[in-house]
Design a protein around this nucleic acid. Structure first.
Lengths: 144, 144
DNA sequence: AATTGTTGGTATTAGTTAGTATCAACTTTC
DNA sequence: GAAAGTTGATACTAACTAATACCAACAATT
């Protein structure tokens, strides 16, 4: 990932126009944990080209593959984050995301564990598993 | 897994009664690749206690977790079967399930690869990933 | 300062889909 | 051999859910 691709440059309405969906739908995906937009101090959301690509993938999953939002959430919650960021055994003990699989790791509070200083939007676990086939492909790299 | 738990002993109507669903729903789950019942030569389906448990899990995913059938299918299609049964590089080349992720591996034709003589119903990839939290837990065993 | 856009929220709708009903042909059971 | 159950298939419905419409308060742009 280059900084350029993840440069937050589209307002929510511009992004929605690019994607041909409504602003409300964009916010719904965020509320459901599928995307993490950049936020200015005022709270205004901004989206990068990489965010756009991620949402294109979400739309593909819903429209073509017929997944629902809970299904996408569940799939994201199965990402083996502990192996991606190489948690220690001790890190795992204090991590809800390790022991549960009801929502993506970035939706859990993580002020008490290894992720406490990480901005999830810029975390490999989030951005490397955003596109359609990336989860299985990433597993191929992680597994023997 | 013991042979006992997987002993096919319930007819479809008895299984449906146990699960409080319709016979048609049972067959739908099969058509969608979520379950592989035992089949007699006549074609009649029989279900084991393990099959019942698997369907309980499917019901839980649909009713409580709000997944849809395509979502469950997609999750099953992400199981890293190649790592479970320890495919060689060459095995992987001839395997649709390795390169695709649109349906569970047991739904692909596999007469040309390592799985050609395997009864999927009795394959670890199928029966070890049947219950609700088993996928993430199995990943914990497979990954460093 | 005025206009345009964004925020979070609720109420509503359009479209989908899981599940049911029904069918004739065949199999199992007793 | 008769009754009960199973097969696959199609037609249909009730329920859900993704998405839209609308709102007042606030922020950004000009």
């Amino acid at each position: 990932m280059t900084k350029d691709l993840n440069n937050p440059k589209y307002t929510i309405s511009n992004a929605a126009k690019l994607l041909d969906i409504s602003v409300h739908t964009m916010r719904m995906y965020e509320r459901e944990g599928l995307i993490i937009p950049f936020k200015k101090e005022s709270g205004q959301r901004l989206y990068s080209d990489q965010d756009i690509e991620r949402i294109v993938c979400i739309r593909h999953s819903i429209k073509d593959e017929k997944l629902n939002i809970q299904g996408i959430r569940k799939i994201l919650s199965l990402i083996p984050c502990w192996a991606v960021i190489k948690c220690s055994d001790n890190d795992r003990i204090n991590c809800e995301a390790y022991s549960s699989s009801s929502k993506p790791c970035w939706m859990y509070n993580h002020k008490n564990n290894i992720c406490k200083d990480i901005n999830c939007r810029e975390c490999e676990v989030y951005y490397n598993f955003g596109t359609c086939e990336s989860i299985k492909n990433k597993l191929k790299n992680l597994l023997p």
